[in-house]
Amino acid sequence: MSAEGAGRALCLDVRGLNVAYPGVAGPIEVVRDASFEVVEGQCLGIVGESGSGKSQSCLALMGLLPRQARVGGSIRFRGRELLADGAREARSLRGRELAMVFQDPISALTPHLRIGTQLGEVLRRHLGTNAAEARTRAALMLTHVGIDHPEQRLRQYPHQLSGGMRQRVMIAMACLCGPALLLADEPTTALDAAVQAQVIALLRSMRTELGMAMVLVTHDLALLSGLADRIVVMYAGRVVESASAAELFARPLHPYTAGLLACVPRWTDAPPSRFASIPGVPPGPGAVGGGCAFAPRCTRAAARCLQSRPELAPRADGRCVACHFPHA
C-alpha cells in the first residue's frame, strides 16, 4: 500500500483481476493479474493505449462486461466483494455507491427520454425517491455541475444539448446518489480542448465537494497531471508501473512510461526537428508470449526480457515496476 494512503481506509481494492474472452485457439486474456487500490477520497489514474485492458478493467468494476467474458480475481469495494457468486449486493451498490461516467455521453444517454426522466429514474431506482422530490434534486444537481436554467434543461432531450453539456448531465447523473467512488472512462476524449478543460475542472471540484474517490481512465497522461494522486500504467493487459503521480511524472521507472511521457509534446521546449514516439505497435489481444509484452518495442530490452516476464514487484523505495531493467 502506498505511503500517503497508509492509515486511510481503502475504497477499492482490486487483486489479481483477470478478464478473458473465449477464442478459437483458447481464451483470449485482455486483463491479466491486475492489482490496484484506491484510498477513500483519492483519485487513481489508469493510463494505457488501445488494448491495454484499462477500459475492460473499468467495465469489470461496474459489472458491465458482456456475458461471454470470464472474470477472475477479487474486487473489494469498501470491504465488500463484488465478484462473489450471485452478488445481489454488488448490483445494488453499482449505480448508487459506485457510479460511472462514460466516454461518449450521446450514446450513454437514452435519446428518446427527457433529461429529467433519466435523472429521476436513477433516484427512484436506487433510493426510492418520489417523482416530485426527484425533480427537485435533479434540478439541484444540474446547478451543481454548472448548468443554467435547470428546470428548462430537465424538459429537454439529449440531442438538444451540446457535447460538453451532455457530459455535465452524465456527471450529474453519476453523482446523484452521492457515490463513494466515481469511475470515469475517457470522460473528455469526445470533447474539444476548451470544454475538456472545463469538464476536468468540474470533476476535480465535484470530487472535493462530495468527498468521493475517483478512478480516471485515459490514454492521455497530461490529463492526469494535477488531478490524479496515484497512477497505474497498463500495457497489454497488465499493470507495468504504479506510483504516486508526482513520482511518476518526475521519475518514470518503466521504459514504456518514460516513452509515453516523452511522446507528449512539451510547450517549454524549443521545437525539435522530430516528434518522439515509441517504435512498433502495441500487441493485439492474445498476441503476448512468455516474455515482457513491451520488449519488442523497448530500447532497453535484453535476451532475458524475451524469455521471462518481469513481475510487478514493490522495490526498496516503495515503488512498483514490472521491468528487468527499469530506469534509475
Binding site: H219, R274, F275, S277
Partner: peptide, 30 residues
Amino acid sequence: DVSIRGQILNLLLDLQRDAGTSMLFISHDL
C-alpha cells in the same frame, strides 16, 4: 495511440521534405 502519433507525424515531415509537398495540417492539438 499516443505512442504511435510521433511515428506518423515524422513520416509526414519526411514526405514533405523529400517530395516538397505543401501541407495544410488541420488539428485541435496546438
